[in-house]
Amino acid sequence: MRKTRREILLSAGKYILLTGTAAAGLESLTGTASADTTTPASDGYKMADHWWGMTMEVDKCIGCGNCVRACSKENDVPEGFYRTWIERYHVKEGDMEHPTVESPDGGMHGFPPTSTPVDKSFFIPKLCNHCADSPCTQVCPVGATFVSPDGVVLVDQSYCLGCRYCVQACPYGCRFIHPTKNVVEKCNLCYHRITKGLTTACCEACPTGARKLVDLKNPKDPVHDFLRHYKVQVLKPHMATHAKVFYKDLDGSVR
């Protein structure tokens, strides 16, 4: 009954080979091999040709709240929740660590006027950063949220359990649970618009052009000049999320 070492090694090798073949066979049976994204949809939209993001010119934001209102109307965002919002920062001279931040109703109805120009103050528009290495999609236990092949972080609302892991994982606070649907809700970069050649509702409504939808894979997009010529920053770069919302003239106090 004793086997030589050679025999044991040989049979072990055979089993390893067979297991690999079986796994590959199962994978092709169940169709988990990756598909190609270059085939256009029926209307000619090719996911592989796009990599969506946004640029923010902070010095152009006037805090009017047009983006928040437009987003809310376009996407039927429930009252009291925001897919995009504006924050007003007040920074005491040199005190970068303790800015005062306010965002009444997400800035939807504007801001109560401040007249004292003692502190430095400015507006910061925020939304989902559509991170390429998004922490939120990594924690989803069922694959109900994901980065699409064209770089948009989407939610599969018919598949979401409402477990809230992703709400906690997002370092930017961009996700919330829909109060009646009980599934997660977030900015989808107006995916129904941008895939039809339109810009997002917030960019459409922005009066000063502070925010602009950009396609990083389009060689003719002005974003390439923007990123080459200006000093830009993403929010929380230390989180290494590969965020694709680029802020120009961002103050160091912004969290």
């Binding site: 949809a41 980065v147 939610v155 599969d156 018919s158």
Partner: peptide, 15 residues
């Protein structure tokens, strides 16, 4: 699993 660990139809739902 068509494009990744998610339902490919979700992309069309969003569109």
């Amino acid at each position: 699993g068509k494009y990744g660990h998610y339902r490919a139809g979700a992309i069309d739902d969003n569109r």
